[in-house]
Amino acid sequence: MPEASDRARRDRVFLVVVDDSAEREVALKYAALRVKKSGGRVALLRVVEPVEQVEWAGIGAMMAEERREEAEALLSGLAAQVQATTGGLPILIVREGKPVEEVLALLEEDPRISILVLASATGSGGPGPLITALAGKAGGRLRAPMTIVPGSLDDKELDRVT
């Protein structure tokens, strides 16, 4: 029995959504620290916007390609940072579409993901669009527990709560 729970621990995946917000750093650090202290893996998801209608097919394809490359470059930069903390390489996922829809679809498709880690914005504008949607209307379709990390936690506090 303890062996089985150990394996489950090693196999669990923390999903961090990489958007352009300032607080994604906090979510990333939290997930990395959790993995470092109690096992598992980090998965990084970057959702790129689909290309809008353009007149020429070749240009549309080139735009999609450049967006994907940009996303991959960003993720591999962050992957190095995660590896420095956890010692393991994170899973990198790039998807195209609307962030909320893609997060829900990914959780649905990939049973390895056990926790979704989001950090809340600290300003007065609410916790951020993803948390607002997932804690509100879209919350019923969520297929994994969601952890909300306050965006205001500093490194010492993050270390304490993980």
């Binding site: 020429w56 240009i59 080139m62 735009m63 450049e66």
Partner: peptide, 15 residues
């Protein structure tokens, strides 16, 4: 748009 990409070499994101 094609002129900006192919002749000027601008990245597609800002085109």
């Amino acid at each position: 748009v094609p002129a900006m990409i192919y002749l000027l070499g601008m990245p597609t994101a800002v085109v």
